[in-house]
Each structure stands twice: as structure tokens, then as C-alpha cells.
Design a protein around this nucleic acid. Structure first.
Length: 310
DNA sequence: AACCAGGCTGCTA
DNA sequence: TAGCAGCATGGT
């Protein structure tokens, strides 16, 4: 991983953000749900508990578009290796490796998408760094409204996750596959998982716990298509879920969850259609996005809700 | 109260 | 191979 000008002093890390980058748009995206249980936004700052190198650190993110400040709160003094790992985590979280100008150049040829691209200029895909979290979140979100999906996630996290307090507030780490692998379907039915979703999540947890499924393994060849095929072989992971995970976790900029109802509704609203586009129509509309489908999708999702800004 | 929701599986033809 | 019923449950 390449990191630009990362320096640190005690618990403070400065990341020089690649340009363009908009921290306020990013925070706007992170503010989309009041029901989010894994991080929160307060006074324009993002707070989240992460675990890197065996160390648990509450990161507090502030700053501006050119420099992102990460204040680290931990029980132990930060070693340089943990500091590097925190910096790397945030770097990936905000997709700082991406060279974004080609995306905007390409969107200029799509009359309606270029407006969306301009509206959220500097927004980068906020990734879900942990593969297990990304898979579970996608499975939980299948065919239900987002409000209910957030509730399912909260119950799952608060039942089986790792809790830590800082400054009088509870923070949670997403449950580990090893913990979930030991559960039974019945343990999740009480959280209002459907039987199917419970089966899917447990099977994914067991694969990850035994090591037959991992982020590194999926990315090993660098072939996103191969990763997609491997994911779709798993029961409960269909095209939408595979593409969602490729987009949010494996960071394939061409991943395209075309089956996504939210995306369809965003296109309908953006283009003033009187109905949702069919999947075939959406594919046709997206031919000009080639290579950047994930970014176009993310921007369209962003257009679905309004925030007061960072 | 019907219809929708960030789909997937497994059965039919 | 393609089409589709059934799933299961909360939100609006």
C-alpha cells in the first residue's frame, strides 16, 4: 500500500489526502443513518473503534479536504506499527488509492451522470474494510428496507460483537467469524433474521473461520471476475451481493450491482422517469460508465438522501 | 391494508 | 437456460 506523507506524533496522524477529496461529502455519506451502530458522526467528526495489529483504537477523524487528521484513543501508547496500521485502515476506508480524475472525465460524456458527479465532487467510495462485515451486511440487507437492515445489524453487533467504552460512550467491533461460526440458526432467529439469512451468515462465518474464505484469498490473483465467481458459488450470495462486496470491500471500481433497488430508484429520480428502469435498461444507460460503474452507483446512492453537510 | 424493500434459492417447462 | 413462485419480515 502506498501512503503519502504520513507523519505522526503520539496519538495524532495526519494523512495527506489524494485530490480531489471532499471530507464533508464523505462525512455526509457517513451520516446517512441514525441507526448505524459501528460509527457515529458528531460535530463534523467521525468516531469509530477499529482493531489493528491486535490493538483496539478509537479513531476520531477530522480535518479538511487536503489533510485528514486521525486522533487515536487507545489504552496503550501507540507503537509506530500500530500507527501505520491505523493510517492504512483509514486510507483504505476512504479509497485513497483511487485515481479519481479519470472518473470525472468519463462522466462528462454522460449528460445526466455528470451532474451527479459534480454535485458530490470529491466523494470517494466509503469502503467496508472487513470482509465478514461486508458479507453479513449485504446478506442482512437482501430484500428488506434499510431501516430494518440497520436494526438487524445493530442486534447482531450488540449480541455478538466486541464492546469497548471510551469517553463515556459504547463502541463496537463487528463480530468475528470465529464467534458466529459457533452459533446455531436458532440464535439468530430471535434477532429477527429469517431462517435463510441465518443459514447464510453462519455458513459464511464457518468458511471464514476455517480459512477457506478470506479477503486476501479473494484478492490473491487480482482478478475481480474470479473473485465474483468464487463468491457467487456460496449459497446465499447472488449477483447483487457479490457485486456489492466487490464494490464496498474488494474495491473493484467496475463492480456494478445493477439489481439494486436503491440504484434503480436513484436513476428514476435523477432522470425524472415515471417508473424504475429495468435491469436491461440500466445496463444500457451504463455503457458509458465502463470501468467506473461502482463509483457511478455510489454517487447515485448518495443522491438518494440529503444531509445538512459536514 | 396492500405494496415495497440495497435478492436468493430451487423448482418447472 | 430462462422464468418465476416462495420466502419471511418490518416499513410506509
Amino acid at each position: 500500500m502506498k501512503m503519502a506523507n504520513e507523519t505522526g506524533l503520539e496519538g495524532l496522524i495526519y494523512l495527506q489526502a489524494p485530490q480531489p477529496f471532499s471530507l464533508s461529502e464523505t462525512i455526509g455519506y457517513l451520516s446517512r443513518s441514525a441507526n448505524e451502530c459501528l460509527f457515529h458522526v458528531e460535530s463534523g467528526r467521525v468516531y469509530r473503534l477499529i482493531e489493528v495489529g491486535g490493538e483496539r483504537v478509537v479513531v476520531e477523524i477530522s480535518g479538511h479536504d487536503t489533510t485528514v487528521n486521525i486522533r487515536c484513543h487507545s489504552d496503550n501508547p501507540l507503537t509506530s506499527s500500530v500507527r501505520d496500521a491505523v493510517a492504512g485502515h483509514v486510507w483504505e476506508w476512504f479509497d485513497f488509492d483511487r485515481d479519481l480524475p479519470p472518473f470525472y472525465e468519463q462522466m462528462e460524456y454522460c449528460p445526466w451522470m455528470k451532474e451527479v458527479a459534480r454535485a458530490y465532487y470529491g466523494l470517494r467510495i466509503v469502503s467496508v474494510v472487513d470482509l465478514f462485515e461486508a458479507l453479513c451486511w449485504a446478506i442482512m440487507g437482501q430484500q428488506i428496507n434499510l431501516t430494518f437492515a440497520y436494526m438487524l445489524k445493530r442486534r447482531f453487533v450488540e449480541s455478538f460483537g466486541v464492546q469497548q467504552q471510551w469517553a463515556g460512550r459504547n463502541y463496537w467491533l463487528f463480530p468475528r467469524p470465529e464467534a458466529i461460526a459457533q452459533l446455531h440458526v436458532d440464535d439468530l432467529l430471535g434477532l429477527q433474521f429469517t431462517r435463510r439469512k441465518a443459514e447464510y451468515v453462519l455458513a459464511v462465518a464457518r468458511r471464514m473461520a476455517e480459512g477457506s474464505l478470506s479477503k486476501h484469498g479473494l484478492l490473491r490473483t487480482g482478478d475481480f471476475q474470479a473473485a465474483r465467481r468464487e463468491l457467487i458459488k456460496i449459497r446465499g450470495i447472488g449477483p447483487w451481493t457479490a457485486n456489492y462486496v466487490l464494490m464496498r470491500c474488494l474495491r473493484d471500481p467496475s463492480a456494478f450491482p445493477v439489481e439494486d433497488v436503491g440504484l434503480q430508484n436513484a436513476v428514476k429520480a435523477t432522470r425524472g422517469m415515471d417508473r424504475k428502469p429495468s435491469i436491461a435498461e440500466l445496463r444500457e444507460m451504463a455503457v458509458g460508465w465502463a470501468g467506473w460503474e461502482a463509483y457511478a452507483t455510489f454517487y447515485l446512492w448518495r443522491s438518494l438522501y440529503q444531509t445538512v453537510g459536514g
